[in-house]
Design a protein around this nucleic acid. Structure first.
Length: 450
DNA sequence: TTGACTCAACATCCTTTGCTACAA
DNA sequence: TTGTAGGTTTCCATGTTGAGTCA
């Protein structure tokens, strides 16, 4: 008996002769389609279905992928840990996630994987900036045209780079055109909508790259199912000193002013009292969602949330943080500094007071390029940014970071730290200052991200 | 082609506790 | 008496991004 596999709009269609689908061994993800009398599975099950059919000793007429072999080569020589990472991925049947810190050379590993597999490849990235970086790198490395989905162009080639958004729109149409898919910053794939990208593609080989695989909402489990488990992981501290700059993190506690303290305590207790009365325990992650839900029709819940938000503003934008920043800027006159905040308002205030070039979400692409280019060539020695420079932008090297405020996200912290870890010519140490308001919830927030 | 706009998607947002109605 | 479930269609606010539309 011969089983036929076909790709159809993001699914794998399974046909057996005489409608003998019922007599097939159980196949991963395949369900009977009562209308057509055949079996059907989401496309990402393709590799597993092939394996199951092969184990069962059935003959397969495979019409899913019909891909040309690519003859690629690269001049790159992998470092030892890069080689180990790639080998681990290959040992896991060309599936899985590599967890490496920013600056460890994830792109190089992906390029080597493409050379070894020699199959059409789709690279999926979160931003247009990254799309350009990857495309430029691949064009320089391989002597083939590189396609682009995103940023206004939709051109498909054997090797194509796409944004997550465009990949989401195109996956159904191109799901049978690639043998390998590389997800850069693969933690994004845990997003409710984005995970469909991986479901609709038939590509048997899947490589995920990230500096922080785990997600607070546990969606990395979904990512592991779609791309493969974490195959290799190396920590910043394993590379610091050799391939990355050695670094120090200095936490500086700052007192609230009496006026700030009074307002903070009032707002915080409004929140805490409501939480206590409502019996919300925050024992699991969804409790906060529960509170948000309530605030839709319970005015007191809404008031509590607004109070919490006001308290957060006070502790994150505390006056004395700005004073401490002044002395840090003074001490590091000769250094290259990036100042990070959580609020755009504060970015503009700091920009005005210390004459720092500012970048926020409101900064246009052209102006942003200009600022970063001047930071790169040394015209500017310091910049202040909101959450913009956290990921997906090629930020010139700095050696001092000042985190004035941030979330409890481990990912955000890792990315900000990564901004100062490119090895220094003089072998110098990088420093990250973390300003935290004493005796506020910010102490917990700061603990959580480390 | 560009620039300004809107829209949708995604991420973060968190604390020290214990109710109430109903079915079996 | 004991065990269990308890919104249905999420979504307080802020920040960031990519895609699409229109002039």
């Amino acid at each position: 008996m011969s089983v036929r596999l076909t790709y159809e709009d993001g699914t794998i269609r399974v046909d057996a002769p005489e409608g003998a689908v019922d007599s097939l061994p159980p196949l991963p993800g395949v369900e009977a389609d009562p209308r057509t009398g055949n079996g059907r599975a989401p496309a990402h099950r393709y590799a597993a279905i092939r394996r199951a059919l092969s184990v069962a000793g059935l003959h397969v007429e495979d019409r899913v992928l019909d891909l040309p072999a690519l003859d690629l080569s690269t001049a790159y020589d992998l470092r030892e840990y890069q080689r180990e990472a790639l080998d681990a991925w290959r040992d896991a049947d060309d599936r899985g996630v590599l967890e490496l810190p920013t600056g460890a050379g994830k792109t190089v590993i992906a390029i080597e994987a493409m050379v070894e597999l020699g199959t059409p490849t789709l690279v999926v990235v979160p931003t247009i900036d990254l799309l350009e970086q990857w495309a430029t790198e691949l064009e320089a490395e391989f002597d083939v045209p590189i396609g682009r989905f995103g940023g206004g162009t939709q051109r498909q080639e054997a090797i194509t780079v796409s944004t997550y958004d465009s990949a989401y729109l195109k996956a159904e149409d191109v799901g049978d055109a690639f043998g390998l898919v590389v997800f850069d910053e693969v933690h994004h794939l845990g997003g409710e909508g984005y995970r469909d990208i991986a479901r609709l593609l038939a590509a048997p080989a899947r490589l995920g790259l990230t500096a922080t695989f785990e997600r607070p909402d546990d969606a990395h489990e979904v990512v592991a199912e779609l791309v493969g488990d974490r195959a290799y992981s190396v920590d910043v501290d394993d590379l610091a000193g050799e391939h990355l700059a050695p670094y120090d993190v200095r936490r500086i506690e700052v007192e609230l002013t009496p006026a700030e303290r009074e307002r903070y305590d009032a707002k915080q207790s409004t929140f805490v009292e409501y939480v206590r009365e409502a019996g919300i325990t925050f024992t699991n992650g969804s409790d906060y969602q529960e509170l948000v839900k309530r605030s839709g029709n319970d005015p007191r819940a809404r008031e509590a949330l607004l109070a919490k938000s006001a308290a957060r503003d006070i502790m994150m934008n505390a006056e004395r943080k700005i004073e401490r920043l002044a002395s840090i800027l003074d001490r590091h006159r000769e250094d290259r500094i990036i100042v990070f905040t959580a609020h755009t308002d504060l970015v503009y205030r700091l920009s005005e007071r210390f004459l720092l070039p500012a970048i926020t979400a409101e900064t246009g692409a052209e102006e942003r390029r200009e600022i970063l280019s001047r930071f790169r060539d040394g015209t500017y020695g310091r910049v202040v940014a909101a959450n913009v420079l956290d990921e997906g932008v090629d930020v010139p090297d700095a050696n001092v970071a000042v985190v004035l405020s941030g979330s409890g996200s481990e990912r955000e912290f890792t990315q900000r730290l990564g901004r100062i870890l490119r090895p220094k010519d003089d072998g110098g140490r990088a420093i990250l200052y973390e300003l935290v308001s004493a005796e506020t919830a910010e102490e917990r927030v700061a603990d959580r991200r480390r």
